[in-house]
Design a protein around this nucleic acid. Structure first.
Length: 598
RNA sequence: GGGGGCGUAGCUCAGUUUGGUUAGAGCACUCGACUGUCACUCGAGAGGUCGCGGGUUCGAACCCCGUCGCUCCCGCCA
């Protein structure tokens, strides 16, 4: 028996190794271990405890040949999830008792000492699960988060998240980016999402806001000359939640000076490459690029999933002279008839295609027109409206189904996007092993509120418009493109950014176009940025990536909640801590707050 | 703000369609047996405001109304 070795970096004054890290090479080593009792098997004369820590599980055995009766009795009595410290010797297992499914399955620890240092009550939710056994409900997992977090899956996900953040820090630091912090108590911004507000005690009736992003601060860093900034930034938005949306989330926030779009995009490709590599995936050094306009035209969506085709085609000319009211009305109103051709879908039942129509209608379409080719003939409700010439132009393959939506692009695009995605799922075209990265560029600067006609910023008000567009159409800002870009993977937005406006005159004009024309109002809301821009601002731009979503993708987690240690529910509650919560009248009073109706 | 799903033992679920004796199963738990298991096995046992409130009924886990919680989606998320 050798003396306790201190070779493990996890050795402390209480233990020598992490239990889950022991391997055949450690045989004959005398070890002291601490961990949680994952499972126990009491065979009478011999007792096995599976001892778990963050590195995994090791089997600890208690037998009459090497353990005292007292020790065996203690081991037999300890409950699962209790914390024990054991001392013993690593022993190679015989061929017959080896467990190939465990990392430490070639060895076990023959224990001579056991101490129950943290006895556990019967856990409210099980940590060890049998094969095929379902997880407890989300509610219980969140309420007993400290137990849920003991599961290997969550520990692995959070450890991967740690590695991703370390890679980010190293990658960006090596390129001269400075990790600089920005305030959490900031100024409310009326644009964008609802702010989380924090009442001020010392200034009655005034409020801080939690940042929706450090946008303006990072621009001020550029104005100050730091040149390159990044931050693993927590952001807050008080909007209703989704499976992939939490009220507080983490961004890799980046800004750089004296750059143009492609400088930022090259950095983005490099960083994404480093992150995916850390998770064990080599990806292309450069990503495919597509303009917003092309993405909307071919996919009806600004973050298309390129893993499959089924691209959208403009079929308006097929219906040009056709005596077909729906198409005629759409074309007369300046719309188009667009559609997708789905190979092999002619065999889909009426009901199946009706389900697609329901999806299209749910996205705003009036209906979904259909024609298919079977036995060399065009069939379907609109076949009779297609002339022989039009049929030739459509040129369906045998067994194909064509689906059309008529109307303005703002109707047909989202409808066909949804239909396209559903068809891909049905045809099994969504290959989870394929990664298609894409950079979408040239977003429009503004969109119009359909009701009021007011302009809104597609990205944010600090994005620079394309100078060529401003010069070519000075009085038609709705035609301006923005120097904005998104990074997309398989139909999911990983991040986005833009080159910013760096002169105060243009910035002031942008505010005016967005309905903040009064100079005093501009100064009140954004004075600290405008002042900064007037003080000498370099050309600058940046990008931000969603850490939670990236960690979710790379860990294979099903929900954002599985890569966040202490997430909120879909009603923005923290079930474990119990936040939000009422506060005492005294605290309310100190903050100069009174509840409505109280 | 709107719509869908779920809520029965510590956990996962069956039972609700068509109201009817004492609400079941597996795992976990307690006790007992067992010296090579690894989801140990075997025997016995304990464990239930059927989310909550109200209503209909001779009778409600089951039907109706309301409400709470979790979840998914639409709106929303520059």
């Amino acid at each position: 028996m050798t003396a306790p070795s201190n070779s493990s970096p996890f050795a402390t004054s209480l233990r020598t190794h992490l239990a889950g890290s022991l391997r055949a090479a450690d045989a004959l080593t005398h070890v002291r271990l601490g961990g949680w009792v994952h499972r126990s098997r009491n065979l009478g004369g011999i007792v096995f405890l599976d001892l778990r820590d963050r590195e995994g599980i090791v089997q600890v055995s208690f037998g009459t040949d090497w353990s005292s009766a007292e020790c065996i009795a203690l081991a037999a009595a300890v409950g699962v999830e209790s914390v024990v410290m054991i001392e013993g010797t690593v022993v190679a297992r015989t061929a017959a008792t080896r467990n190939a499914e465990m990392g430490s399955g070639d060895i076990e620890v023959r224990a001579t000492v056991i101490e129950v240092v943290g006895p556990a009550e019967t856990p409210a939710i099980p940590v060890a699960r049998g094969k095929g056994e379902k997880l407890p409900s989300e509610e219980l997992r969140l309420r007993h988060r400290y137990l849920d977090l003991r599961r290997a899956e969550l520990q692995q996900s959070l450890m991967l998240r740690h590695r991703l953040l370390q890679v980010t820090r190293r990658h960006l630091s090596e390129r001269g980016y400075l990790e600089l912090e920005t305030p959490i108590l900031t100024k409310p911004t009326p644009e964008g999402a609802r702010d989380y507000l924090v009442p001020s005690r010392v200034h009655p009736g005034e409020f801080y806001a939690l940042p929706q992003s450090p946008q303006i601060y990072k621009q001020l860093f550029m104005i100050s000359g730091f040149d390159r900034y990044f931050q693993i930034a927590r952001c807050f938005r008080d909007e209703d939640l989704r499976a992939d949306r939490q009220p507080e989330f983490t961004q890799i926030d980046i800004e750089a000076s004296f750059v143009q779009r492609d400088d930022i995009l090259a950095l983005a490709e490099g960083l994404i490459g480093a992150l995916w590599r850390e998770a064990g995936h080599e990806i292309p050094a450069h990503f495919e690029r597509m303009t917003y306009e092309a993405a909307m035209e071919k996919y009806g969506c600004d973050r298309p999933d390129l893993r499959y085709g089924l691209e959208i085609v403009d079929f308006s000319t097929l219906f040009d002279g056709a005596d077909f009211g729906i198409a005629r009305a759409a074309l007369a109103a300046g719309g188009r008839v667009r559609g997708i051709v789905v190979p092999g879908a002619a065999s889909w039942s009426r009901k199946q295609v009706d389900e697609l129509e329901a999806i299209a209608k749910g996205a705003g379409a009036l209906g979904l027109l259909r024609v298919k080719k079977t036995d060399g003939k065009y069939e379907g409700p609109i076949a009779k409206f297609l002339s022989a010439e039009a049929q030739n132009a459509l040129a369906l393959e045998e067994g194909a189904l064509a689906l059309f939506v008529a109307g303005a692009d703002r109707i047909t695009s989202p409808a066909l996007d949804r239909v396209r995605q559903e068809c891909a799922v049905r045809l099994g075209l969504v290959d989870e092993t394929v990664r298609r990265f894409l950079i979408v560029t040239d977003f429009p600067m503004f969109d119009r509120d359909p009701g009021s006609g007011a302009l809104g910023a597609v990205h944010h008000p600090f994005t620079a418009p394309n100078p060529e567009d401003m010069a070519a159409h000075p009085d038609e800002p709705h035609r301006w493109r923005a120097l904005a870009y998104d990074v997309v993977l398989n139909g999911l937005e990983l991040g986005g950014g833009s080159i910013r406006t760096h002169d105060s005159v243009t910035q002031s004009r942008m505010f005016s176009l967005l309905g903040i024309g009064d100079p005093a109002e501009q100064e009140r809301r954004f004075g600290f940025l405008l002042e900064g821009l007037r003080a000498g601002a370099p050309p600058h731009g940046g990008i931000a990536f969603g850490v939670d979503r990236i960690a979710m993708l790379l860990s294979g987690a099903a929900s954002l909640r599985d890569v966040i240690a202490f997430p909120k529910t879909t009603t923005a509650r923290a079930l474990f801590e119990g936040a939000p919560t009422q506060v005492s009248p005294e605290e309310m009073s100190a903050l100069h707050l009174r509840l409505e109706g109280a």
